[in-house]
Design a protein around this nucleic acid. Structure first.
Length: 431
RNA sequence: CGGGGCGUGGCGCAGCCUGGUAGCGCACCUGCUUUGGGAGCAGGGGGUCGCCGGUUCAAAUCCGGCCGCCCCGACCA
């Protein structure tokens, strides 16, 4: 499927001098992303594959709760933002077209989706409904940082639920909790669902999905059966903090010690209520002909942050070590020996067989030394590395290394049938 | 937005204090050798030194202004 000689994977031995966060350094070094400006990043082919793995998982789970995928524009008229009172948010990019009309670049899509709900939802018969899209968000961040962790432009999956009343909203919200839990579990990340502030989004309740990692900008307070954003814990009457701001800072909840961990916010879900439907006139008629505001929820997840969190959580001194569900390729096949040798022929044959078996494989067919190829493979972090060299020709097996902990696994026979090969690889990936 | 730092080839850096026509490692190109843990030898290409202005016979280097980028904090809908 992919030969390295026909690919763009610009790996670097040295990280950019100004990179601080692990994910920033490794994603650049592994050839996944490149920077254009502050908070403006390009996803290179291998990086985009990882991003799209997350997107696929999210899409499957949102579809599974009845979400309907669509696409709304980033460039929008300012008027709905004026109506919801969000036009004067500093992070909102404002601009004018050639006629002088006020436009904005959307930082999220409540205004757009509610605008359309007002146009298209008329009756209680149209409810409930879940709409979603994957779309770029633009935010004039005061301080972009840490590579792809906090950018001015990023893709978000945002879904919006529409119900006739609060009970309906609670149902749609619960569906999203389930979907988000499954998404996080499928990615393989360590995560917590925590209660969060509703912030200026307004509304009736909210949760955040937090992935603990060193580069995290937030902190979560964790106890037995308890997990909360520190901002929420701070206002919890059950929580006491002792020695705040000092090295001995300890938090307790009903006497039980809490640990504080830095974490990245990778998803958030809000019960909006009628915060947006009222100013934008999104109403429906009930069975009695009464006009009532639609009850809404909004649910976001940032694939880029999921990717960065995965890098942060599983990296080691050799590079990235992807959870199998997110890896750009399942198998990194390393050919040792120059073209024309029996070992290279064996590698080519194995590559062809892997493709036939439907395995996602990156084939390092470059004319480079073994050390360089191994180092690049460990930097990129695919779950399995298969090596074919002179030894393989003698033993009849490709050597297998499991990236996580760099474990040596039993080799796979070069003369395996494609389907047997695929099964063996899936078993090795599964752990 | 406050504080700190940095802009010299794709990446990492030296040179700047003490002005004299740009250098190192990696990467890249060609050839030969090499091929199981980031190879060796030889040859080669690529940089208006962030931008503008000033001082000077002469500016990467000194002076002024601007721009960009990073880190800490504030912020984070």
């Amino acid at each position: 499927m992919t030969r390295l000689t026909e690919y763009l994977l610009p790996t670097e031995k040295q990280a950019p001098a100004d990179a601080e966060a692990i994910s920033h350094k490794l994603m650049v070094r592994a050839g996944l992303i490149r920077q254009m400006g502050a908070g403006m990043w390009t996803w290179l082919p291998a990086g985009w594959r990882v991003h799209q793995r997350v997107v696929r998982i999210v899409r499957e789970e949102i579809d599974a709760i009845g979400g309907r995928e669509m696409l709304m524009p980033v460039l929008q008229p300012a008027e709905p933002w004026r109506k919801t009172g969000r036009l004067d948010i500093e992070e909102l990019f404002k601009l004018h077209d050639r006629k002088g009309a006020d436009l904005v670049l959307a930082m999220t899509h409540e205004e757009a989706v509610t605008f359309h709900a007002a146009q298209t939802i008329d009756s209680y018969r149209d409810l409930p409904l879940i709409l979603y899209h994957f779309q770029v968000k633009e935010r004039d961040e005061p301080r972009p940082r840490a590579g792809v962790l906090r950018t001015r432009e990023f893709v978000m999956k945002d879904s919006y639920s529409f119900d006739r009343d609060q009970a309906g909203l609670e149902e749609r919200y619960a569906l999203h909790v389930g979907a988000y839990d499954r998404i996080m579990e499928r990615t393989g990340l360590r995560f917590y669902r925590v209660e969060s502030d509703v912030g200026m989004m307004g509304g009736l309740g909210a949760h955040e999905y937090m992935a603990p990692c060193p580069a995290g900008e937030d902190r979560v307070a964790l106890g037995d059966g308890y997990a909360a954003n520190v901002e929420v814990a701070r206002h919890d009457p059950h929580v006491r903090h002792l020695g705040e701001g000092t090295a001995q800072e300890t938090w307790t909840r009903d006497g039980q010690a809490l640990t504080l961990e830095p974490a990245i916010e990778i998803g958030n879900i809000f019960k909006l209520g009628t915060r947006y439907s009222e100013p934008l006139g999104a109403t429906y008629l009930d069975e009695h002909g009464s006009e009532l505001p639609i009850w809404m929820g909004s649910y976001g997840i940032g694939p880029a942050r999921v990717v960065a969190a995965a890098v942060e959580q599983f990296a080691d001194e050799h590079g990235i070590s992807w959870p199998p569900a997110l890896a750009p390729f399942a198998v990194h096949l390393v050919a040792i020996g120059r073209p024309g040798t029996p070992e290279r022929d064996a590698a080519e044959a194995l590559y062809a067989k892997l493709i036939e078996a439907g395995v996602d494989v990156l084939y390092d067919d470059r004319e480079a030394g073994a050390g360089e190829k191994f180092a690049d493979a460990e930097l990129l972090g695919c779950p399995l590395r298969l090596t074919v060299g002179r030894k393989s020709v003698e033993s009849g097996e490709a050597e297998v290394q499991i990236r996580r902990d760099r474990l040596q696994a039993p080799g796979v026979a070069l003369d395996s049938e494609p389907q047997a090969l695929k099964r063996a690889i899936e078993e090795l990936c599964a752990g």
